[in-house]
Amino acid sequence: MKQLFYCGDQEYPAEPYDSVEICAADVRFPAVVKKLHPKSREVTVSFEGIDPVLDMIILRKSARVPFDAVEFVERGW
């Protein structure tokens, strides 16, 4: 089975519920990984419930983003 690894490091495979940051230009959004799509090298992330202000600003509560735009923050439960 093909896996996605943070920064190509074989010690850190991407897993659901990992806390990550989505890097878009100079802006970073906190998110949680919900689903992995190894073939397309994309992940589905959720923004809901992370920050109350973010919940009011962002209308979409989830998005499918390229894995290269994701930066690992901490391992989920």
Rank of each mutant, 00 (worst) to 15 (best):
L36A: 11
V65T: 00
V45M: 13
L36Q: 07
A69R: 01
V45R: 07
G49F: 08
V20I: 15
S62T: 12
G49P: 01
P16Y: 13
R75N: 02
E42K: 14
F29L: 15
K39A: 12
V33I: 14
R41V: 11
E48R: 15
E42R: 11
F5A: 08
T44D: 06
D26G: 12
W77E: 09
I58D: 03
A31M: 13
R60F: 06
W77R: 03
Y6Q: 09
P66L: 15
Y17V: 05
A31V: 12
V53T: 10
R28N: 11
E48V: 00
A31H: 01
G49Y: 04
A24Q: 04
D51C: 03
E15S: 06
I50S: 13
D51I: 11
Y6R: 07
R64D: 12
P16G: 09
I22T: 02
I50Q: 05
S19V: 07
F47Y: 10
E42L: 06
V20Q: 05
M56V: 06
I58A: 02
I57M: 15
K39F: 13
V27Y: 14
V73R: 07
A63Y: 13
P16K: 01
P30C: 01
V43I: 05
E15K: 11
D18I: 01
I50F: 13
P66A: 11
P30Y: 02
V27M: 11
E15D: 04
L54A: 08
E11M: 03
A25M: 06
Y6T: 05
D55L: 10
K34C: 07
A31I: 05
D26T: 11
G8R: 12
M56P: 00
L36V: 10
M1L: 03
M56C: 08
S62C: 13
Q10K: 03
E71H: 00
F29V: 14
E15P: 00
I22L: 15
S46N: 03
K34W: 00
V33R: 10
H37G: 08
Y12I: 08
D9H: 09
K34S: 01
R28M: 14
I57W: 05
R75H: 08
D18F: 01
P52L: 10
S46P: 02
P66N: 15
A31P: 03
F47M: 12
S40N: 03
D9F: 07
S46Y: 09
S46G: 12
V27H: 05
Y17N: 15
A69T: 02
F47E: 06
D9Y: 05
M1R: 00
M1S: 07
M1H: 13
Q3K: 15
E21T: 04
Y12E: 07
L54P: 04
F5D: 04
G76Q: 03
L36T: 05
Q10I: 14
K2M: 05
Q3G: 02
S40H: 02
A69Y: 12
E74F: 10
V70I: 15
G8F: 09
P13F: 05
K34R: 14
S62I: 00
K39H: 15
S62H: 04
E15L: 03
G49I: 00
I58V: 12
W77C: 04
S46R: 09
G76V: 08
S19L: 14
R75Q: 06
I22E: 01
D26Y: 06
A69K: 12
G49N: 10
K39N: 13
